[in-house]
Design a protein around this nucleic acid. Structure first.
Ligand SMILES: [Mn+2]
Ligand SMILES: [Mn+2]
Ligand SMILES: [Zn+2]
Ligand SMILES: [Zn+2]
Lengths: 142, 142
DNA sequence: TGTTTATATGCAAATAGTTCGCACAGTATT
DNA sequence: AATACTGTGCGAACTATTTGCATATAAACA
């Protein structure tokens, strides 16, 4: 189910130069299981059902893992952050302007377009990740 | 300099079914002048230099204009919103992971890709806008 | 294995961005 | 001009996120 085993996650944390703590692994294991970008709120709520973990700890781990390049942070104009594992593949999603519905679209690459844009850039020489959001009303809200 | 004249902006406001007020026009005229997505903070600071306008009013106008489809709201994982005029053309930008630098890239369309993605979607039948952010370190921060 | 040192955590309090209630002002409609 | 509805200022409230500090834990080292 999870896209990475616990051992793989541990090695990713070590490779990032971060300490392997129970809480940090909990966060990573959670993100390795979900299929959609998850909010901090959801993460905290769910993790607290099984473990005693403070929200400050969750925030700090999300930040350290994100800085280390292991997570991607997404914002859909919801006023709060969403996180997902950094997979190496770009992140593309359809976002409803009315409800919180998000649909992840996979299998379509825009790397060529990204390269073209980078070539046009004056301020950037290379980039690491990219994301794309397509906004509209979902079938339910339409 | 501005991409719309005052009269055009007035007509856009009327067409949106909103009242034409001095404050609402100030916000729109400001956005018609700048070349980059602007933060609420910048907007409030700059407008206050010339006019007495409350930040609640700015927020409310940004919301109403955005809901009316006249503005686009962008978030670059900065923890605050950025706004720009909705031009009909998509919005693509390079975003520095370290500083607040943003570079707008124009002239490259990804409409075909958007169509492909929409075709793959199960939850959306059609969409209205899309945006794309390419993240990395700018030359200065690299 | 025990000791040391840097990093991580819990808790509470602070901060930042944004929204809201309410009284009053302005816009558009008649 | 009278009316009805929308917009505005001001302060307070609210939500998401960050921070200070004391304590706990992980990794490094003796
Ligand atoms: Mn959300
Ligand atoms: Mn910003
Ligand atoms: Zn919806
Ligand atoms: Zn930079």
């Amino acid at each position: 189910m999870a896209i990475y085993s616990k051992d793989e996650l541990i090695n990713m944390v070590k490779g990032a130069g971060l300490r392997v703590t129970d809480h940090r692994l909990l966060v990573l294991e959670y993100l390795a299981k979900v299929k959609q970008p998850v909010t901090v709120y959801e993460l905290v709520e769910d993790l607290r059902k099984k473990e005693n973990i403070d929200q400050a700890t969750v925030y700090r781990n999300l930040s350290s893992l994100h800085e280390a390049g292991l997570l991607r942070r997404l914002d859909f104009n919801h006023g709060h952050a969403h996180y997902e594992l950094e997979t190496g593949h770009a992140s593309h999603q359809l976002v409803c302007n009315n409800c919180e519905t998000i649909e992840k679209i996979e299998g379509i690459s825009i790397d060529d377009t990204v390269k073209k844009m980078l070539k046009k850039s004056k301020k950037f020489k290379h980039t690491t990740t990219h994301s794309m959001e397509i906004y509209g009303l979902c079938k339910t809200c339409a």
